[in-house]
Nucleic acid binder design. Structure first.
Lengths: 105, 105
DNA sequence: CAGATATGCAAGCTAATACTTGCATGTTAG
DNA sequence: CTAACATGCAAGTATTAGCTTGCATATCTG
């Protein structure tokens, strides 16, 4: 997937969105906790978390032998500002555009 | 990319976001117009547009031998409602969570 | 220290993705 | 009618994503 912006790519996976949901419900969970109930190996979850960390969507902190994960809302807000908000004013003048297009000919 | 929600997957590609941007700038463009300046073949663009159409992000209308493309903002708004908005209230109490966690032990 | 626990690292497999090439079909213009 | 134009269809290729398996390392507990 050709993409300079890692946030979209990361959000495109259901497992990763689920992990974000879990951290949103309770922040600071360990790797083991985040693996509970996941239908894949711990290593798979680790790899998803690594991508989330690369995209700056989570921050990680070692606490003894445990690894704590914290959700960071900033990139999602940036996505909203850059990509969502400008599309929220729907251009309902599609027919007007069509009319213009036909007249240009 | 394992995902039931096609909108995220579709938005994850830079080329497709660029196509949406172009339609947002001027709605109702033909396939040929949307191909201009793209550094790939027409068929590649067609495939991207097909994915955008599947995700209901664009609507297509045949006009003679031309194919007109219209942007549809509804799925992006749905994404915002379902996934973005709830993350916009940042939980800045990470330290509080950490404190709770340590006390649970 | 020794065993259990929590996590890390890396190679390998499979399926999906992005893109191309080649040809076919439908439409408009002279 | 026919030639140029706009688009459609399908098979093939290279890359990447998601996941697994196997083993290594670090930390806690008794």
């Amino acid at each position: 997937m050709k993409d300079m912006n890692p946030v979209f790519k990361v959000l495109a996976d259901r497992t990763r969105r689920h992990l974000l949901d879990r951290l949103h419900t309770r922040n600071g969970q360990t790797l083991g906790e985040l693996c509970e109930g996941m239908e894949m190996t711990r290593q798979a979850v680790t790899q998803h978390l690594a991508l989330l960390e690369q995209a700056n969507l989570i921050a990680v902190q070692r606490q003894g032998r445990e690894k704590l994960h914290y959700f960071n809302p900033v990139p999602i807000h940036a996505i909203y500002e850059r990509w969502i908000r400008k599309f929220e004013q729907p251009r309902l003048n599609a027919l007007h555009d069509l009319k213009n297009r036909l007249e240009r000919k």
